[in-house]
């Protein structure tokens, strides 16, 4: 039985431990991402929390909306040679190259820990072609402990990685193939490195995606003037951190108005205020990424800040915030 089939006034059934502690007046943080029900709208972004083991020392994983695990591929990947990261103005570039343990070890070695920790797991996957995406999704379908699948259609640091999310047809075909291969909710993670992200988002929805998450990193580069060498061995890398937040926010705003499925906002979120901006722009939930590197507990701080803000502003549920941006009559809308 899904929660929306529950009778009205079934408070006692739906009260989360979090709410029990805070008392009856605590706002409801629960949100729905398509068929997926999360205890709150704050997740950790893929690639910034590994498979949860290290983060669990600082954040009770069952407190977060979800943990989006590091991208897994069909076979283990060694990743790119170092230097893989460099700091830039209010952000950083990375070119990790999808170093990961591969799907089988993810299932056998990593998932049990997350399951025991009570984490809601969104497994991020990347395939080399449509069939491989479907194969990975099928493999995760019967495995306990995975709540949803996020498709990394947009890794900028591997050959062919960006192909999926820069091509609407490929995006649609991938989403459709994955949907046919699994009963799990499917989230398409979109790249900002496109001319028109709305067209890609629409294609993902046409393919059956239950939600879209955006944005992945922006492709960038940095040069060491002294040595005249690129600061990353991969030459280019993905830009993340507060530097990209305005771009991410604009894209979330555009996509949220154009598609019918929930949008998950990602990009430079450091504080509860940042997260609230994304919710107001139309995101139903957010992912905290690079900020975790500045403080491993930051996702929890963001969550607590949202809850405090809701209490201060008399908000009963997160849904009341989503898309609550106020526009004056004369302001032209960016939506198309």
């Amino acid at each position: 039985m899904s929660s929306d089939q529950l009778p009205v006034n079934s408070d006692q059934l739906l009260v989360t431990p979090h709410q029990q502690r805070a008392g009856r007046d605590a706002p409801s943080l629960q949100i729905h991402i398509g068929p997926l029900c999360l205890r709150n709208p704050v997740m950790t972004a893929s690639g910034t929390c590994g498979y949860g083991e290290e983060l669990a020392e600082f954040v009770p994983l069952d407190k977060l909306g979800a943990i989006v695990t590091k991208t897994v591929t069909r076979h283990p990947r060694e990743g790119n040679p170092p230097p893989r990261v460099c700091e830039t103005a209010a952000g950083m570039l990375n070119a990790i190259g999808l170093q990961n343990v591969g799907i089988e070890r993810f299932i056998s070695d990593k998932l049990p820990f997350l399951r025991d920790a009570g984490a809601t797991v969104i497994a991020n996957i990347a395939g080399e072609d449509v069939a491989e995406f479907a194969e990975l999704a099928r493999r995760l379908d019967g495995v306990g402990g995975v709540a949803a699948i996020e498709l990394n259609l947009s890794c900028p640091n591997v050959a062919g990685g960006l192909d999926f999310s820069t091509d609407p047809q490929l995006t649609e075909a991938t989403c459709a193939a994955v949907k046919a291969a699994t009963r799990l909710p499917v989230i398409a993670k979109l790249s900002p490195n496109v001319t028109d992200i709305v067209a890609i988002a629409r294609a993902a929805v046409a393919g059956g995606a239950d939600a879209v998450s955006l944005i992945n990193t922006l492709v960038g580069m940095a040069i060491d003037v002294k040595t005249r060498r690129p600061k990353l061995a991969n030459v280019t890398g993905g830009l993340s951190g507060p530097a990209i937040k305005p771009v991410a926010l604009r894209m979330v705003y555009q996509v949220a108005q154009a598609v019918s499925v929930p949008v998950i906002g990602i990009g430079g979120i450091m504080t509860a205020e940042d997260a609230l901006e994304f919710l107001l722009a139309g995101a139903s939930a957010v992912q905290v990424g690079t900020a975790t590197f500045t403080n491993p507990r930051v996702s929890l701080d963001v969550l607590e800040g949202i809850e405090r803000w809701m209490q201060e502003n008399g908000m009963g549920s997160v849904q009341e915030i989503v898309g609550g941006l106020r526009l004056a009559e004369h302001v032209p809308t960016l939506a198309r």
Partner: peptide, 17 residues
């Protein structure tokens, strides 16, 4: 020594062969 964005093992940025 290596540049380390996270310092606690999650970002995979500071690797050595």
């Amino acid at each position: 020594e290596a540049p380390m964005p996270c310092g606690f093992g999650v970002c995979m940025g500071c690797v050595v062969k």
